[in-house]
């Protein structure tokens, strides 16, 4: 198990290094930050002075190795825009992203899994078709479209909920629903598929034949077996939800990592963009790592080396 863990951990670190390196190179090739950060008529001397101050006058390989050395020391650089440490800027945004992301995940799971179970248990009925139609709608509606619809309905027409901001729990509702909708739909659909697959297995027929009650079959045999692929799916999706709320955060003016990333990229604030990308990559990598570990724990077919053995 230790070897399995170590392998996964090294792979995670390599993935992070690749993400950070790719972001570093692309950002350096995407234009001179002084174009955006200094006035249009700033002199060449002033531009040169700022490039030197920010280390942009060095070669890209030199900048890259200096940056890696700083990251290893825990120093993500200073924001070009306001001079604060990039880590401080990121730490201000992380709680908001975690609040929004976790509320969306809780909502998606709390509603999506029961709906999937209900649909599977009433397969090919009107209820099943209705639930699945809403599920498909949930993950196929573009986020920006749903967000604007919700704002038009709840903020503009009914005036029940605020359209943006973070002051009260009411401000959390519309962005949470928007962010959760995709995951909710996918969770319901995936749960239904997993359950139907398990329900057709011989051991379920055996359990029923032995007279195990319907609820007992569901809780004791169907759900534990359906949970394995569902966990794999959720692990990846949860990482994406936490890291990928860019559109939702922008529309609802929710000051999380996604919006910070957009605003820092637009103003070519390279240290902040790099720190945000590092955070997003870390979330994705960690959630994948967690999936691997949980999978190894819950699936007895996976041995200590991470190899999957099928039953003969």
């Amino acid at each position: 198990m230790t070897r399995y863990l170590a392998t996964r951990f090294v792979r995670a670190l390599l993935t992070l290094l690749l993400c950070v390196s790719a972001a570093f190179v692309v950002l350096r090739l995407s234009g001179d930050p002084t174009d955006i950060l200094l006035p249009e008529d700033a002199s060449a001397d002033t531009r040169a002075e700022y490039r030197a101050r920010w280390g942009l006058d060095r070669t890209i390989p030199e900048q890259y190795f200096r940056y890696l050395a700083s990251v290893l020391r825990g120093d993500l650089g200073l924001s070009f825009a306001d001079g604060r440490p990039a880590i401080t800027v990121i730490l201000e945004a992380i709680p908001n992203t975690l609040i929004l992301g976790s509320s969306a995940i809780v909502l998606a799971l709390a509603v999506g899994i029961p709906l999937g179970v209900l649909a599977a248990q009433h397969r090919n009925t009107t209820l099943d078709r209705t639930i699945m139609s809403f599920a498909v709608l949930g993950f196929s509606l573009p986020t920006f479209f749903l967000a604007i619809l919700l704002i038009l309905l709840f903020a503009l027409t009914l005036r029940w909920l605020p359209s943006s901001g973070t002051e009260t729990w009411l401000h959390l509702l519309l962005p949470t629903i928007t962010l959760a909708s995709g995951l909710l739909g996918k969770t319901a659909r995936f749960t239904r598929t997993s359950l139907l697959e398990v329900l057709s297995q011989p051991y379920i027929r055996t359990a029923r034949g032995k007279g195990v009650p319907r609820l007992g079959v569901l809780l004791g045999h169907v759900l534990p077996n359906a949970a394995v692929p569902l966990l794999m799916f959720l692990g990846i999706e949860i990482g994406l939800v936490l890291a990928g709320a860019v559109v939702t955060e922008t529309i609802f003016a929710w000051p999380g990592i996604g919006r910070l990333l957009v605003s820092a990229a637009a103003s070519r604030d390279l240290p902040v963009v790099q720190a945000a990308i590092l955070f997003v990559a870390a979330i994705i990598v960690l959630s994948n790592l967690a999936v691997d570990l949980v999978h190894a724990m819950v699936d007895p077919r996976i041995d200590a080396f991470g190899t999957r053995h099928s039953r003969s």
Binding site: I151, A155, S163, S164, T250, I251, F252, V262
Partner: peptide
């Protein structure tokens, strides 16, 4: 940042 949110607000 979003115009439609500013108008709705």
């Amino acid at each position: 940042p979003e115009l439609s949110t500013r108008i709705a607000g």
